[in-house]
């Protein structure tokens, strides 16, 4: 069953429709649901759980949980599915941190192939790491020491815009200009280093493309290996031991 998309529909209606299709067993709709929300949910998880590198796992487990609940008709209010997805991710994240181990899902791996196939997690992770490295260049490329001070005070020392403007005797427009240019420079560096791969996916393409672009054979191989390892780890978590075939 294909996902029906109609540009005249409201976003809320679209989501409800996708959820109904998932409930009816439509695998394509599952893919659609993940593609529509993956980047958004990953950002929330990264923002909330900064001191862990398990973001991808948290997001995947949250999707697994919500889609399974949809398929078993345990979600009553489809119009609040995003809030439910967000809450699940946050709870799973806390569970990860509390146990200091992976969240133990009881879901079958067979139900989750769409996640492994459609999301290039490792590329996203590489893009994120790449982005963190690029920040150094952005800071280094700034023309004046004062611009560096602005970024450090805003992003590192968490001073407010008003405080920084007063402290450095800046106009708000000047502040906005420096921040805007720094963001643009960072985006440009990520896109340049990542090309059409994960860097661009993370920031631009994923929201508009339902299919994640596979940049080249090497990345595809890396992604495949990562997926295989992920599946093995999930099997380990679910069964507590390696299964021999």
């Amino acid at each position: 069953m294909a996902v029906q998309s109609d540009s005249t529909q409201k976003p809320g209606d679209m989501i409800t429709r996708v959820c109904e299709q998932i409930m009816a067993g439509d695998v394509v709709a599952e893919n659609q649901f993940v593609a529509d929300h993956y980047r958004w949910l990953l950002f929330i998880v990264r923002q909330k759980f900064r001191n862990t590198d398990l973001h991808m796992d948290i997001v995947q487990d949250a999707f697994m949980l919500v889609i399974t609940k949809l398929k078993t008709n345990e979600v009553k209010q489809l119009n609040t599915i995003r809030a439910y997805l967000r809450t699940c991710a946050i709870n799973i994240g806390h569970e990860y941190l509390r146990k200091n181990q992976k969240y133990s899902s009881s879901l079958s791996q067979d139900q989750l192939d769409w996640l492994a196939d459609e999301q290039t997690d490792i590329l996203d992770q590489l893009a994120w790491e790449d982005g963190l490295q690029q920040v150094k260049q952005v800071i280094g490329d700034l023309p004046t020491e004062r611009d560096r001070d602005i970024l450090n005070l805003f992003y590192f020392a968490h001073h407010s815009k008003a405080e920084i403007c007063e402290q450095l005797d800046l106009s708000p427009a000047h502040f906005d200009r420096v921040i805007y240019r720094a963001r643009q420079r960072l985006k440009e560096l990520i896109q340049r280093s990542g090309g059409s791969s994960g860097g661009a996916n993370t920031l631009n393409e994923q929201s508009t493309n339902n299919k994640t672009t596979k940049p080249n054979v090497l990345n595809r191989m890396i992604s495949g290996a990562h997926n295989l390892i992920s599946q093995l780890l999930r099997a380990w978590r679910q069964h507590g031991r390696w299964r021999t075939v």
Binding site: R46, W128, I139, L151, A182, L203, S207
Partner: peptide
Amino acid sequence: LADHPDELEVLELDLLMQEGLKRLH
């Protein structure tokens, strides 16, 4: 934010800046 990808992108860049600067420092 789920319905505003442009705003989300700005925040992603801001988060990268925050974490990148933290690592740099």
